[in-house]
Amino acid sequence: MSLDKTPSTSMQRRPDWAALVIAAILLVLAGVILFDVSRLRDLGGYSQVGPATVPGWIAYGLIGLAIWTVVAAFRGDFPVREKQEVKPVVWIVAGLAAQMLLIRPLGFSIATGILFGLTAAGFGARRLWISIPIAIVICLAIWWVFSVVLSLSLPAGPLENLLQ
């Protein structure tokens, strides 16, 4: 997330830029809601609260909160952030992304094994050539249990097809 790259120390009497970004995000969200519900038709109209009414309330609430956030940003009301290390986060996000992209072509075990290995790497266990194969074997066992005991087919790939 781009938000995390903002400096974590906020100087006095200067607006908290990260908070302003958050306010902007809230405004965009409100705008998207208002835009999207404007096309809804009020079907069945016996209730004056139609499909677009409550989304409208929520959107105006978000706008109000955005303004409040801006005020808080200028008054320096936001808490001091702890220093964030980006590298481990990148490892884990890469793991989740890899699982997401590989689960269809390569099946549950390989994809989830890679997630396991990369997450462990994010926490300092970098020997991927050991962690990933072990994790794949464990996942294969899980896959097998699901398929046989629960007759729930998790996505299968080349390894799973060997077991079928």
């Binding site: 072990i134 074997v137 464990i138 294969l140 066992a141 097998w144 046989v148 060997l162 077991l163 079928q164």
Partner: peptide
């Protein structure tokens, strides 16, 4: 634990026609 998993995979592979 690892032995158990391997064993159960082998057993499962053999048990399935």
């Amino acid at each position: 634990m690892k032995h158990f998993i391997l064993a159960s995979i082998l057993a499962g592979a053999m048990a399935l026609p």
